[in-house]
Design a protein around this nucleic acid. Structure first.
Lengths: 140, 140
DNA sequence: CCTAGATGGTTGATGCCTTCAAGTAATTTC
DNA sequence: GAAATTACTTGAAGGCATCAACCATCTAGG
């Protein structure tokens, strides 16, 4: 329980450090890694669990670094879809790679143990079951 | 791995919500719950993994709400020990209680499973082994 | 069609956290 | 006792969180 708090803190610090290595903040890194496919601002706000007005600023800063682009939605002109630029995709790949390489944590467990861990976390926190915002498995 | 990210996020949101219920921010709540016993500012900075200059402001705000008090250290007059006021102790108790009651998560597991989870997390993240900043077990 | 209401996004204000650089006071080291 | 450390504070600049207000657009009801 308390260990969980520490693990959570360690994870966040690690992520923030990796993002900082590329001149990004935690939220900017999180946002980038959500953009495996284009998403409207509103979707980002939901996934980041923050106010929509907040996303405006975050995307502004990402766009200022040319990592992201706003694209008008043809079907609904209110919507702006956020898309990774090529540089943005490169950055995401790098971040993901560093996240993994730095996270030797899970390699200290056997595959069986990893599976157990995953199952237990899933049982304990069913509400974290991945809506559809995952980094993979985009069943359209 | 990705599940870990979600669990971490969920944990933080929960903590922040509980703190907000008492008019506190996440960092203020964290700080309060570290004060099971008096600690110098520097120790708080280390435990919170943030800059010392930061703690000044956090403690200022807690002190302004009369939850915390600065006490001069008799042995080293540079040091200011931060102590919970009575109201601060009440607040900590409430926060801790709400944290537990809201966290039915672990009750979804059997004691055996809880133990396994704890062990696995400990093996995967040995660096989170609890220096001595815990909320209990203060073996002086 | 056309008004009323909901929805997507932006802006502005305020407050808190974060990082950095600089500064004061007290302690340690030589 | 001078020099280097250490504990804490201050100030400036940037980012995130929350809230209220605001346009533009879409959707419903008449």
């Amino acid at each position: 329980m308390e260990r969980l708090a520490r693990v959570a803190a360690a994870y966040y610090r690690h992520f923030a450090a990796v993002a900082a290595g590329r001149g990004l903040t935690l939220m900017q890194g999180k946002t980038l890694s959500l953009l495996v496919r284009p998403r409207p601002m509103r979707a980002l706000a939901d996934l980041l669990a923050c106010d929509a007005s907040n996303v405006t600023g975050i995307v502004d800063r990402l766009a200022a670094q040319d990592l992201v682009r706003r694209e008008a939605d043809p079907a609904d002109r209110r919507i702006k879809n956020i898309v990774l630029t090529e540089q943005g995709e490169r950055t995401v790949r790098h971040i993901r790679a560093e996240l993994m390489s730095g996270l030797t944590a899970l390699e200290r467990l056997t595959p069986d143990e990893r599976d157990t861990l995953h199952t237990l976390l899933g049982r304990a926190f069913p509400e974290t079951a991945a809506p559809q915002g995952g980094t993979l498995s985009g069943g359209s």
